[in-house]
């Protein structure tokens, strides 16, 4: 692969929502993805949005990008087919996006479904990407508690950006106004599930706090509550059959109380 060839990175951006006021804004993780892309030398950065043409998209333009390709989709549409079609036409080397959206289903499934449809690998929770020596890319992945893992990945691939990645640069008003929201015509595919969904504000998930067994000092209790204990137990199932793997997962879910199982009557 020649280094002279201009590489294309496409960042998928969505319309975010401020957690307090509920106003539309640039999504935090998506803007971190754009920040990551803008910091990669030798790449031409393009933005892709599927959904409504919100003025909040201009906040991405204010970070220093000339235009966003907007695939206009009704709110009931499944955006994945539209994104996949646009990406196939465009054939970028790299696709970046946030881990999950701030509105809509916010399930975090979009990047997986896009990668699946394109047949590309997906690297989750990325904090930085740099070019390796032999046409591969060195991708730094964020793990819990500040740990990092370096992966070597060959293009093309999809990467989701971790909230631990560098904060997005300031969005400036002038470039945001001058930038273009370019409408790109694509067909829309209705999402059959969309009509049945009921939306409610997200709640913070409760954190599991380990109780200190024999804590005599405040420092010990504090440590017990904050330090995540290394995973204990667990099993690695590789050679087992799918049924055995599934039953192991089910057993764990039952043991953790995630799934209630009626006692056999």
């Amino acid at each position: 692969m020649s280094l002279d060839k201009s590489l294309k990175v496409r960042v998928l951006v969505s319309v975010g929502q401020h957690p307090k006021s509920g106003r539309e804004r640039r999504a935090d993780q998506d803007s971190r993805a754009l920040e990551l892309a803008l910091g990669m030398p030798g790449f031409s950065v393009g933005l892709l949005h599927a959904g409504s043409e919100s003025p909040a998209l201009r906040e991405y333009l204010g970070m220093g990008v000339k235009a966003i390709d907007v695939l206009k989709q009704p709110s009931s549409a499944d955006v994945v087919p539209a994104l996949v079609q646009a990406l196939r036409n465009d054939s970028p080397d790299l696709v970046l996006c946030g881990t999950r959206a701030e509105t809509g289903e916010a399930s975090g499934m979009t990047p997986y479904r896009v990668a699946n449809a394109l047949g590309w690998p997906l690297v989750p929770a990325v904090v930085s990407i740099s070019r390796g020596s032999d046409g591969t890319y060195e991708v730094l992945q964020a793990l819990p508690r500040g740990q990092r893992r370096l992966l070597k990945v060959r293009t093309p691939f999809v990467a989701t950006v971790d909230p631990a990645a560098a904060e997005a640069r300031q969005s400036a008003f002038g470039p945001a106004q001058r930038g273009q929201l370019q409408a790109v015509a694509v067909a829309s595919v209705a999402d059959p599930a969309a009509n049945d969904l009921e939306f409610s504000p997200a709640r913070k998930r409760p954190k599991r706090i380990a109780a200190a067994r024999k804590a005599t000092t405040a420092a010990e209790r504090f440590k017990a509550a904050t330090v995540k204990s290394a995973s204990k137990g667990g099993q690695v199932l590789v050679k087992e059959t799918a049924a055995e793997k599934a039953s192991a997962i089910l057993n764990l879910l039952v043991a953790e109380g995630v799934i209630a199982v009626d006692s056999p009557s």
């Binding site: 401020h18 307090k20 006021s21 106003r23 804004r25 204010g62 970070m63 220093g64 640069r169 300031q170 969005s171 400036a172 008003f173 002038g174 470039p175």
Partner: peptide, 23 residues
């Protein structure tokens, strides 16, 4: 610097974003 370059230092960017999103 703020409107064209987007280089308000310190907590400038965050503060301005808050003013836009939450008044």
């Amino acid at each position: 610097l703020t409107l064209e370059k987007g280089t308000t230092p310190g907590k400038g960017s965050e503060t301005l974003q808050n003013l836009i999103a939450t008044d």
